[in-house]
Nucleic acid binder design. Structure first.
Lengths: 334, 334
DNA sequence: GACGATGTCGAAAACGTTATCGATACCGAT
DNA sequence: ATCGGTATCGATAACGTTTTCGACATCGTC
């Protein structure tokens, strides 16, 4: 075991025979140090393996070249974003710091505000916040919201076209001949859920198919609640022949319930989801769904953040297209 | 736009009519503050939305309740670990901070040392380092290595049984009747690559099938290099009927190359990978591979780190089992 | 040889927090 | 009345950086 304390700037200074002020100038490439001194100090830095403390550095300078991604939890959705963001940040001169408050379930509301308060001003130069519910904007600190849960706020935002995606999903079912189509909607307080329901209604209206209101029910985007909703729908005397679930979790849950009732998917019931989380391809049957380009959303949000910090004038609302992914959970009505 | 600066401890102190010292005591729940004062200060903290600056806090106290996961880049491998780690950290009282140095390609060797130097001592109380190549241990700072690229160091380590996994993969191909089996190995300087090659040779030897040395070539674990290696193998006069690729990236790349040459997978060539990254299930054909329990590895590494910090006496080398995942990229030799 | 200009360096303050320790106020007991 | 003890609080010094600004040398110029 090596006995080795953290090597700090004063250690470098002492070894090189200069002051810490000079070392700082060398590290930051500032003017006013003799060439010979620069080289000597750099030599010592290299030998001692000195690296500036992020904490101390940011405390003083309010500039760290680190960007933050704040998430409630590292689950499939946010990690996909992370991959895209990571790719975008490479070569930009920034480093990436992903932070999770880690309160179980990410349930504690206001996590984004707390995490932001903890890291902003010090530590990071800007942040991407994933699926925030409440947003408030601090002066002089740049924030980009990805897939925000409330409607358009003042914040720069990256999201996908939930409305068009829902139309796509509904049209797909319609084109397969389905008419009794149900919709399991998400949490009513979430903008994305509202848009998906609106898209569903629009597609039905355009096709001249009246919506049976008993077939539109809240599923809450969650496995358990969606399951009971699906059970209700399938217990109806004239049950739907197809279900458009508000997200993939609900869809997967719906398939399970149908199975439990002895209904085959897609033989007796077609199910389509939304999101295209990686799990959707792995379930049986593989889920037909609407893809949100998550990695690209991650990349775009980072690009947007970097541009904002650099002061580039640009559009601050990016909406990416959604896309139909046909797998095996839907089939034509016989 | 709200004009709002970061609210700091002195703001709270002023509003509550006490000193910053008192506020600090309240925040940290230390003894020596009147009950009435505690309540008043907490009220103000809540109203102003005060949150301690991670940077300043750690600079002074060397204790932050934040654990770090250091990765070269956020790619599928590390994000899977992250999911597991995130689950484990919930409810532990710690928060999770994932950090990527973000040098393009993660190629710059020594990133783990630099990131560690940057964050340790300040900011984080301990760290999990993913696939480190060089490791050195600082005094009094706890580090766990996941899937380290060099052999057993002094560090606490979590990895999976690469050798047994390679045997599994090779046995699978053998059981399908293949005899001309190639191996695209990883970077020779990496322990996991060596173990996988060793497992391959062991399985071949046990089956009494001699290894044709021309069929064992370095692929380097990377898409491009694996592609050219695969091209070489498939250009051989008596080309292999099956390929065991060192990891899934190489395997996917190999399938692409085979396709390009007009070879069907699995009809004309069987391909098996290693890792079971989520992408493996999505490619066409879905990849048969060896699963490393990545999420569990992430969870175990965090558990180990927390125990080490808490001073729990325990085993510091955790090896998790690997598992064959049969999908559609291998078939019996006709 | 005196002078301003220029180049090089270090002392010291500041960033927002925590920890120590002394000051003050109040209490009951003698 | 005085005193020791206890509760409560605040001044102050750190933590490791960056930044400002003044000190000192050196140099070319007239």
């Amino acid at each position: 075991m090596v006995f080795e304390q953290r090597v700090k700037m004063s250690d470098v200074a002492r070894t090189a025979g200069v002051s810490v002020a000079t070392v700082s100038k060398v590290v930051n490439g500032r003017y006013g140090v003799a060439q010979a001194t620069v080289e000597r100090v750099q030599q010592v830095i290299h030998e001692l393996g000195y690296e500036a403390s992020l904490g101390a550095q940011s405390l003083r300078s309010h500039r760290t070249n680190v960007l933050g991604i704040l998430v409630a939890e590292f689950e499939p959705f946010s990690t996909e974003l992370l991959k895209g963001a990571s790719r975008e940040v490479a070569g930009s001169g920034y480093q990436l710091l992903a932070y999770s408050s880690g309160d179980g379930e990410g349930a504690a509301i206001g996590w984004e505000r707390r995490s932001l308060a903890r890291l902003s001003g010090t530590l990071i130069d800007g942040a991407v916040i994933v699926t925030p519910t409440v947003v408030e904007t601090k002066h002089g600190f740049h924030v980009v919201a990805v897939d925000p849960h409330t409607g358009p706020s003042g914040l720069p935002t990256v999201d996908s076209d939930n409305f068009a995606g829902a139309v796509l999903a509904t049209d797909h079912l319609l084109s397969l001949g389905h008419r009794r189509i149900a919709h399991i909607s998400g949490r009513p307080d979430l903008e994305s859920a509202r848009l998906r329901e609106a898209g569903f209604r629009k597609a039905m209206a355009d096709a001249g198919v009246p919506v049976d209101e008993r077939l539109v029910r809240v599923g809450g985007f969650r496995t358990e609640t969606a399951a009971s909703t699906a059970a209700e729908l399938l217990a109806l005397p004239d049950r739907p022949t197809a279900i458009f679930a508000g997200n993939d979790l609900s869809a997967i849950s719906t398939v399970d319930v149908a199975r439990g009732l002895g209904l085959g998917v897609p033989d007796d019931l077609s199910v389509i989801g939304f999101d295209n989380i990686p799990e959707s391809a792995l379930v049986d049957p593989p889920l037909t769904t609407i893809r949100q380009p998550l990695q690209r959303m991650g990349a775009e949000s980072l690009r947007l953040l970097i541009d904002l910090i650099a002061g580039v004038e640009r559009d601050t609302h990016i909406q990416l297209p959604t896309e139909l992914v046909v797998r095996a959970s839907c089939r034509a009505l016989r």
